[in-house]
Design a protein around this nucleic acid. Structure first.
Length: 577
DNA sequence: GCCGTTTTCGGCCCGACTGTTTTCAGTCG
């Protein structure tokens, strides 16, 4: 039972309790517990097995949740969950995916009409049964019918990189508005989450009507969900929701802080404000003087945090993980930036499944300000990509030697390989070949579904191989498409730390592998991370910024990232092992 | 259900918008 499954279980319990109308703070405790467990760098099972440690020392996990964790680890299930499911069929939770239908109304539908599924609800709406219920009306019925169609189609979060393209288009469109003074995109996009569920736009403008009309004119709008004085929500044809808020200039910073989130971060910020006798909302920070709220901050975000005695937090850190503790200790990390990156150590050419030649990749890398790159085509096991056997890779390396001679010495082209870790363990190329490389990535492409012990053993085996520089995309997940391998990451991290093998943060927006939590765990163990693009074309080099974002979310500084170093220093680091 | 420099009870963030209401509950972020 890994942390993710424990967290998912707590989230489901929260959903079911919400449906039952339980104490909202009890529900929040389960949601907090879920998030805490999901973000934990150590596995719950490990902490439980360690007599010197106690789960209740983790913030947000009390006696009760600790016992439930233990039950889940021991038995694989939870008595409480079974009881809840005997009262409420799990399928009713589908109803909560309908926009505008929350737990209260869903519970009425279940209790009064016995509705358990989206199909059942659709029938009841069409027959007019729903509009007869107290608190429901014709309009609600119409809203539900529209929402059912929406909930039935996959309501997927989009990759951050896709959101980024959309943000560019929306920004360009909205900047045409007359009297637009300030425009910013907040929410999970600003926090650099790997996926984005909706977009939050914040605007200061002379006339909110003009801005809203302008958004209404955006060509990809499918539907306007809400439009009031200061707030508007639309749905794009892609299904993505876009929320717009128009705020006065003196509140812009407070609104930016508020709508950037995360929700959990803000709950803690508000709690702290309250402790200091202050009030904070999206309009500003207020002190109560003689019964009246007096604004003391709001125009800029830094000032809002300063008013509470806090430093400005980089948005990527606002997840209610460790940022407040760091702030207290005056130890907020100075996060790595794109400008810190000097090399890119994972890319493919047209020798295998890439599109560019070696020379084209070199030119593209130079124009992006890089000082070195490694060519890391696939090894022969990846036959679909025409992976290189020993003979071809040695020929490629000779070619690289030749190209290096023509380069001015300012730029270094490295002889690399992305060598497969074979299904039965061991590397796809002999050690005597790997020994001639400057840089060896090891990665799994086949046998991804192997049981935990076996796949962990394969990866740890590669880590122990002295010729292997780093493990590429260590968990193999593809966001929204493929689960990670069932690999024991603690064992991988432990082995990497012991053998001085680096771990990759693959910057491809569909991978972002390692994820933020794993990055933090690697940092805690002193394992250097290498952020690589895995480019299959010259344009592919541009995803580096996605990797940087993920690294920042993991709290990594430039010194935690190996390819911020000059190649000579990085090579020395590799030989340390 | 969690938490505690006001510590074992009593809090726990707060405002906009909508629909079905005649003054507010539900939902959302």
């Amino acid at each position: 039972m890994d942390n993710k499954r424990i967290a998912d279980t707590f989230d489901q319990i929260a959903d079911l309790l919400e449906f039952q109308g339980a104490n909202p703070f009890r529900i929040r405790a389960y949601r907090n517990g879920a998030r805490t467990v999901r973000d934990l760098t150590d596995s719950v099972a490990t902490i439980i097995a360690d007599d010197s440690r106690d789960l209740t020392e983790v913030d947000g996990i009390g006696k009760d949740l600790a016992a439930k964790c233990a039950e889940l680890v021991d038995t694989g299930s939870l008595e409480m969950m079974n009881e809840l499911l005997s009262e409420i069929p799990g399928s009713v939770l589908d109803l909560l995916r309908i926009p505008g239908l929350g737990p209260k109304k869903a519970a009425v539908l279940f209790k009064e009409l016995g509705i358990q599924t989206l199909d059942g609800l659709e029938e009841a709406c069409q027959s007019g049964e729903v509009a007869k219920l107290k608190g429901f009306g014709k309009k609600t019925e119409d809203t539900l019918l529209k929402g059912i169609a929406f909930a039935a189609t996959a309501n997927q979060r989009i990759y951050w990189s896709e959101a980024d393209v959309l943000v560019g288009r929306l920004r360009e469109h909205l900047e045409q508005t007359n009297g637009m003074e300030q425009l910013e995109f907040a929410g999970s996009y600003r926090r650099g989450r790997e996926t984005v569920g909706d977009l939050d736009i914040l605007v200061v403008a002379n006339d909110s009507t003009d801005v809203m009309d302008c958004l209404q004119d955006f060509e990809e709008i499918a539907d306007t969900l809400v439009r009031g004085e200061t707030k508007m929500s639309v749905r794009l044809e892609s299904g993505l929701q876009v929320d717009l808020r128009v705020v006065p200039a003196e509140s812009f910073g407070a609104a930016l802080q508020y709508f950037t989130g995360s929700k959990d971060h803000n709950v803690l910020v508000r709690g702290e404000a309250k402790r200091q006798g202050l009030k904070i909302n999206e309009y500003g920070v207020y002190r109560n003087e003689a019964g009246k709220d007096v604004g003391i901050s709001g125009a800029d975000e830094e000032g809002v945090y300063r008013a509470l005695g806090m430093p400005w937090f980089p948005p990527e850190l606002r997840e209610a993980r460790q940022e407040f503790r760091w702030a207290e200790e005056d130890a907020l990390p100075e996060l790595v930036g794109l400008d810190d990156i000097r090399g890119d150590l994972h890319m493919h050419t047209n020798a295998t499944d890439g599109r560019g030649t070696i020379e084209e990749m070199v030119t593209a890398a130079q124009s992006r300000g890089l000082q070195y790159i490694a060519i890391t085509d696939h090894s022969k096991r990846v036959s679909m990509a025409r992976g290189l056997d020993a003979e071809r890779v040695l020929a490629q390396w000779s070619e690289i030697d030749r190209i290096n001679e023509q380069l001015d010495g300012e730029f270094k082209l490295l002889k690399g390989i992305e060598c497969d870790i074979l299904e039965e363990g061991g590397m796809d190329l002999p050690d005597k070949v790997l020994a001639q490389a400057d840089w060896v990535l090891a990665s799994v492409h086949y046998g991804q579904k192997q049981p935990r012990d076996k796949i962990t053993c394969r990866i740890v085996g590669a880590i122990e191989n002295p010729h292997v520089s780093a493990i590429a995309h260590p968990t193999g997940r593809l966001i929204n498409r493929r689960e990670p391998y069932d690999v024991d990451m603690e064992a991988v991290l432990q082995a990497a730390a012991e053998h001085h093998t680096l771990l990759e943060l693959n910057a491809n927006p569909a991978r972002l592998d390692l994820n933020d939590v794993h990055c933090a765990a690697a940092k805690a163990k002193g394992i250097p991370i290498t952020i690589n693009t895995d480019a299959h074309s010259i344009e592919g080099l541009d995803v580096m910024r996605c990797g940087i974002m993920q690294a920042r979310r993991g709290g990594l500084t430039a010194t935690d990232v190996a390819n911020t170093m000059a190649w000579a220093d990085l090579r020395a680091l590799l030989r340390r092992g």
